[in-house]
Each structure stands twice: as C-alpha cells, then as structure tokens.
C-alpha cells in the first residue's frame, strides 16, 4: 500500500465514521426506536456503512 492509496481511501473512511457518529448521537437523543436500542447500537457499529443507513430509514420511530 503506497501513500496515494491511503490518500484516496481516507476520505471514504472519514465519511463512514461521520455516519456512525451522527447515527449514535441521534440514537441517544431519540425517545423510542423500532426494536430495542442496544440492538441498533450493535447494528450501527458493526455493519459498516449499511448499519447507520438502516437505522435512519427503519430505526427512527415515525
């Protein structure tokens, strides 16, 4: 891995990190979710990229 690879992939990693962080902040703020909250914490952290998206679409109780 040379440095250009890292330079190109770093922004992608940063974006995914931001996604995880705002999903967790939102999860903390929100009163109720569809399903238990701890489950969503696990989904957000362990399912990279898809986890936070699933949370924003399905997890927030409408």
């Amino acid at each position: 891995m040379d440095t250009t690879v890292i330079q190109l992939l770093l922004p992608l990693g940063v974006l995914q990190l931001i996604l995880i962080i705002i999903a967790l902040i939102d999860l903390r703020k929100i009163d109720e979710t569809n399903g238990p909250k701890w489950m969503w914490v696990l989904i957000i952290i362990f399912f990279n990229f898809i986890g936070p998206v699933l949370y924003f679409i399905l997890g927030r109780r409408m």
Binding site: L12, L15, Q16, I18, L19, I22, A23, I25, D26, F49, P52, V53, F56, R60
Partner: peptide, 17 residues
C-alpha cells in the same frame, strides 16, 4: 434535526464513488 442534511449527502457520496 433528523440529520437528513448530513446523512443523505454522505450516503450519496459513498454510492457515487
């Protein structure tokens, strides 16, 4: 407030690149 202005652009960027 529902963070749509952050997550929707980020998800679109990831899809695009």
């Amino acid at each position: 407030r529902s963070f749509k202005w952050i997550w929707v652009p980020i998800v679109f960027i990831i899809f695009a690149i």
